[in-house]
Amino acid sequence: MAEDVHRRTAYKPSQAMAVLGFTLVAAVVFSLTLPGFLSVGNLFALTRGISILGVLALGMAVVVIGRGIDLSQIAALAVSAAIAVTLINAGYSSVAAILAGLALALLIGAVNGLLIAVVEIPALFATLASGLFVLGVTRALVVPHYQVFLAAGHDDLLMLGANIAGGLPVPLLIFAACAVVVHLFLSRTVLGHFIYAHGDNEAAARLSGINVRPLTMLEYALSASIGYVGGLIMVASTSLMHLQIAESTLIFDVILVVVLGGVSLVGGRGNVLSVVAGTLLIGVLLNGMTIMNLDTQTQDIIKGVVLLIAIGLDSYVHPREEETAKQGD
């Protein structure tokens, strides 16, 4: 028993800290070897590049902490942002249109939660299929050509993707704001603690009186709506929304960022710092390799090998008891 306590109090770097350390090492190496890596301008470029990924990862983290996964996140954000843009183009006020998009994102998320918690379809499958469904319906009814351009003259919305004084990118500010809000929500509110409890042990959470079904719906609604914020940044940065991003591998990147920093897929582990750490690592790697003008494939291979090493190291540093490990992890 005493030994147990001792072991628990001994310092062991959390996965997030380890990833941050690794990021720092990579950044130092790039600074020394790549001209132009270490400049304010490049740092802003770097952070701008990963802001969207970071925001999406925050949303995904909420679900993953609740021991779920949301493969429909990209589809949901693409669909709701595309519909918001369509409404704006049709002459509705930006605010009304954006709120309508938000409502749609919340609805998609809530329905996901319903399918998972009430109908009890495995999360992986439910979100996969629901993503296909919303995508198909939206394209059939609203966005026939998969892409919708924001009509000219909506600079207020475009501001979300612009830079402010000193070249500070607005997406970075949004990412920071989202991170703070999600952090406060997860660590300071009852619902946040419930989400951890839900992810850690669903049966125990239910038996101790948490109503896990609405909670699941909330988690997925949060994932979709935080994703929607990322979608708005996409629209603001490119002035268009192309539904095909829902079929890209972006969702894998999001999950990777989430899990890399220590938000385990078994649920109940990790926090916002984990997400930030994972995002930064990917950002630094991608930025450095873009400066080196490596092609995407080489970038992916290098990224993959680094990740594989990281995963291996992690399981070496944090061995898990495989017999009690939850399945589908």
């Binding site: 894998f252 897929l265 494939q297 992916d300 291979i301 993959g304 594989l308 995963i311 399981s315 992890d329």
Partner: peptide, 27 residues
């Protein structure tokens, strides 16, 4: 090997292998 002997997590491990093999394929 990674999943059984290094005890890594299947979802993540195979996802990263997917990315690596896919990128190699494209190249």
């Amino acid at each position: 090997g990674l999943i059984a002997y290094a005890k890594t997590r299947p979802f993540l491990t195979t996802m990263v292998v997917l990315i690596i093999v896919r990128a190699s394929y494209n190249k």
